[in-house]
Simulated assay, not measured.
Amino acid sequence: MKKADLARLRALCLALPEATERVSHGEPAWFVRKAPQFATLADRHHDDRVSFWAAAPPGAQQDWVQRDPGRFFVPPYVGGRGWIGVHLDVPQDWNDVADIVEDAYRTVAPKTLIARLDDGE
Rank of each mutant, 00 (worst) to 15 (best):
K2M: 07
K2G: 08
K2I: 10
K3C: 00
K3T: 13
A4W: 09
A4I: 10
D5K: 07
D5Q: 12
L9M: 01
L9P: 04
R10V: 01
A11W: 10
L12Y: 02
L12A: 03
L14T: 04
E18S: 11
E18A: 13
E18M: 03
A19Y: 08
A19F: 04
T20G: 11
T20W: 02
R22Y: 09
V23D: 14
S24F: 09
A29F: 03
A29D: 07
W30G: 02
W30C: 06
W30K: 03
V32E: 05
V32S: 04
V32M: 03
R33C: 02
P36T: 01
Q37I: 13
A42S: 14
D43Y: 00
H45Y: 11
D47G: 10
D47E: 11
D47R: 10
R49E: 09
V50W: 13
F52M: 14
F52V: 05
A54H: 02
A54G: 14
A54W: 04
A54R: 02
A56S: 15
P58I: 04
G59S: 08
A60Y: 09
Q62S: 12
Q62K: 14
D63T: 13
W64Y: 15
V65L: 04
Q66K: 13
R67M: 02
D68V: 11
D68C: 04
D68Q: 12
P69F: 08
G70D: 13
G70R: 13
G70W: 02
G70Y: 10
F72P: 01
F72D: 01
P75W: 05
P76G: 06
P76Y: 00
P76Q: 01
P76W: 04
Y77D: 10
Y77C: 08
Y77K: 07
G79C: 10
G80N: 11
G80Y: 00
G80R: 06
G80D: 01
R81M: 13
W83P: 09
I84N: 10
I84L: 15
G85A: 03
V86Y: 01
V86M: 11
L88P: 05
D89I: 14
D89Q: 08
D89K: 12
P91E: 13
P91N: 00
Q92L: 15
D93T: 03
D93Q: 06
D96M: 11
D96S: 09
D96V: 09
D96Q: 10
D96R: 09
A98S: 11
D99E: 15
D99M: 10
V101F: 02
V101Y: 07
D103W: 12
A104I: 09
V108E: 03
V108L: 07
P110M: 07
K111P: 00
I114Q: 12
I114T: 03
I114N: 03
L117N: 01
D118Y: 06
D119A: 15
E121S: 01
